[in-house]
C-alpha cells in the first residue's frame, strides 16, 4: 500500500519536473518537436550512466589489461607504478612455458567434458521431471540448491569429498568394492583434472536441467500425440519431435555452458589451486597464479587475454546463434 502510493507520488513529482523541463523549449520550438527533443534528452540521460559505468569499470580495465600484457610488470613495476614496454615478450614467454600449454589443454578438456556431461545428465533429469509424480515439484526446487550456492562452497564440499582419507568418493568406491586402497584424487595431475570436471558438472547440472525442462514444457503435446498416433516409439518421438522442436533451447544451453565454463575459476582455486605440480591449472587459475602469487603480472595478463579471446569467440558464436535479440545469460 505505502509502497504503491509512494511510487505514485514519486512518479507524479518526477513527471512534474519533466513537464517543467519540457515547458522551456516549447516556447521556441513547435510543441511536437520540443517534446521530441525533451524525450531524447531524457532517454540519453537515462542511458549515459550505464555507458559511463561500463566504460570505467569494463572497457578501461580491458584497455589497461592489454597495456600491462606488453609490459615487464613485476616487483619493480609494482613499486614504481608502471613497467617498461617489452613488446611481445610476455606472450612469447607464456607460450614457451609448458604449464601454459597444459593449462590451455586442460581448459579445453574441462570445458568440453563439463558441458557435455552437464547437458546429457541435465537433459535426462529434465525428461524425468517432465512428468507429474509425487514430489516432482519439490525435486525441481531442491535440485537448484547446488546451483545457487557460491562455487567456493561447492569447491570446499568437493575438497572434502575427494580427500584421500575419509573422503566420500573413496568411501563409496571402497564400500562397493571397486578400490582397495584409497585413491589420491588430488595428488595426481590427471585425477585432479577429473575431480575439477566432476565438481563443475555437479554444480552445472541443475542449470541445464531446469532450462531444458522449461524447453520441454514448450513442446506442444499435440505434436507428440500426432507422432504417437503415427506409431512412433517413445524414443522416436523424442528424437524426431522433441529434440528438433527444442533446437534453439539446446543451442543456447550449450553455448551458454561453454561461455560460463571457460570462466570457471573458483572451483579450481579451492579444490586444487592448480596443483599438483601445476597439472590441473586452467587458464583462469594460471593467470591468477602468475599475476598474484608469482609476481609476473605481465605474463599473467597475457594468459588472461588469451582466455578473453577464447571467451569472446564463443560469445560471438552465441550472439550469432541467438540472432542478436537474446536477453540471455544466467549464472555460470
Amino acid at each position: 500500500m505505502t509502497a504503491t502510493t509512494t511510487q505514485q507520488a514519486l512518479g507524479e513529482r518526477a513527471g512534474g519536473v519533466a513537464e517543467r523541463l519540457s515547458a522551456r523549449p516549447r516556447r521556441f520550438l513547435p510543441p511536437r518537436l520540443g517534446r521530441r527533443y525533451e524525450r531524447r534528452f531524457a532517454l540519453v540521460a537515462f542511458l549515459v550512466p550505464s555507458l559511463v559505468y561500463v566504460g570505467l569499470f569494463v572497457a578501461y580495465p580491458l584497455y589497461r589489461d592489454i597495456v600491462i600484457s606488453f609490459q615487464n610488470y613485476g616487483f619493480s613495476a609494482l613499486a614504481a607504478g608502471h613497467g617498461p614496454f617489452v613488446g611481445l615478450a610476455n606472450y612469447r614467454q607464456m607460450l614457451n612455458d609448458g604449464t601454459t600449454i597444459r593449462a590451455i589443454a586442460n581448459t579445453v578438456v574441462f570445458t568440453l567434458a563439463s558441458v557435455a556431461a552437464q547437458f546429457v545428465i541435465g537433459f535426462a533429469m529434465a525428461v524425468y521431471l517432465n512428468r507429474q509424480f509425487a514430489g516432482s515439484a519439490f525435486l525441481r526446487r531442491i535440485i537448484l540448491v547446488p546451483w545457487v550456492m557460491p562455487l567456493v562452497v561447492t569447491g570446499t564440499i568437493f575438497s572434502l569429498i575427494f580427500a584421500s582419507t575419509n573422503g566420500l568418493a573413496n568411501e563409496v568406491l571402497h564400500g562397493i568394492g571397486l578400490v582397495h586402497k584409497p585413491i589420491g584424487w588430488l595428488t595426481s595431475g590427471d585425477l585432479a583434472v577429473l575431480s575439477i570436471v566432476v565438481t563443475n558438472v555437479w554444480a552445472g547440472i541443475p542449470f541445464n536441467a531446469i532450462l531444458l525442462f522449461s524447453g520441454l514444457q514448450d513442446v506442444p503435446p499435440e505434436q507428440l500425440e500426432a507422432a504417437s498416433v503415427d506409431g512412433a516409439s517413445p524414443w522416436q518421438r523424442f528424437t524426431r519431435v522433441t529434440v528438433p522442436m527444442m533446437r534453439p533451447v539446446i543451442m543456447i544451453v550449450l553455448m551458454l555452458g561453454v561461455v560460463y565454463t571457460l570462466k570457471v575459476f573458483d572451483i579450481v582455486i579451492v579444490l586444487t589451486n592448480g596443483g599438483p605440480a601445476n597439472e590441473s591449472q586452467l587458464m583462469s587459475s594460471w593467470a591468477y597464479t602468475q599475476a598474484f602469487s608469482d609476481f609476473q603480472l605481465g605474463t599473467g595478463t597475457a594468459v588472461a587475454n588469451i582466455l578473453l579471446v577464447f571467451s569472446l569467440l564463443c560469445g560471438v558464436v552465441y550472439v550469432l546463434l541467438s540472432r542478436g535479440d537474446n536477453t540471455g545469460r544466467a549464472r555460470r
Binding site: 584421500s164 589420491g184 588430488l186 595428488t187 586444487t272 589451486n273 596443483g275 599438483p276 605440480a277
Partner: peptide, 8 residues
C-alpha cells in the same frame, strides 16, 4: 613412508 598429499 610419507603421504602422497605432501605435494599439496
Amino acid at each position: 613412508a610419507a603421504p602422497k598429499s605432501v605435494v599439496n
